[in-house]
Design a protein around this nucleic acid. Sequence first.
DNA 1: AATCTATATCGTAATATTGCAATATAAAAT
DNA 2: ATTTTATATTGCAATATTACGATATAGATT
Lengths: 110, 110
Amino acid sequence: MGATKTDHFTDQQNTLATLLKALGHPARVAIIEYLMKVDTCICGDIVNELPLAQPTVSQHLKELKNAGLIKGSIEGNSICYCIEEEAIEKLQNYFANISVKLSNKKNNCC
Amino acid sequence: MGATKTDHFTDQQNTLATLLKALGHPARVAIIEYLMKVDTCICGDIVNELPLAQPTVSQHLKELKNAGLIKGSIEGNSICYCIEEEAIEKLQNYFANISVKLSNKKNNCC
DNA sequence: AATCTATATCGTAATATTGCAATATAAAAT
DNA sequence: ATTTTATATTGCAATATTACGATATAGATT
């Protein structure tokens, strides 16, 4: 075992879980927040901002890219990463939706 | 290695990552969505809704509870789980915030 | 009290993730 | 052309996650 049984869930659920999982690590949260902080999308020095070795950061960047949360374009001999807005919007919509539904219930619960 | 270096990141980043990681599995997304769907918080039959064995579901519920995304109260010999609204709100705020910041930038980027 | 029902825990196998040193790659600067 | 700079990839050890059978626990029912 050990492998997630994605085939038993809806595409929606799997896609969402992939996005959330990609953000489910403090280093990757930190990367996103750094990309937010620096006004223009920054080339490179993410490594210097994080308390992790260069290969580790590179790996986290790859995961964020695979999940569709950031994109990177080559800029000379460095690479320019920035946030993929659609992905953030997808998440924003999802939680906004749940929040609305929750406040409509108020509160048949425990 | 294999252990996340949480001590190098801010509490905010770690807390957020914990919440997101907890939702970073389709089964746990499905659990949250099921708790949303059934109007009153449901006792038990989450197991029947999911394509996973009972111990597995129990484990996923525990993780959601540890992350503070759901709470469970004993109801006779079964347990009544429901969504912890504050946690969802925290996430909703976070992404709403990022979205606003992103749309204010429009788009010094790549 | 014995049994049933609902849930949790234990133990364990399969797989995934995290982190880094070493190395590769490729453009830029000398 | 060689070196420097920036990033990616490989290989690997440590740890975590996922899944489930077997078993434990605890309240409800008989």
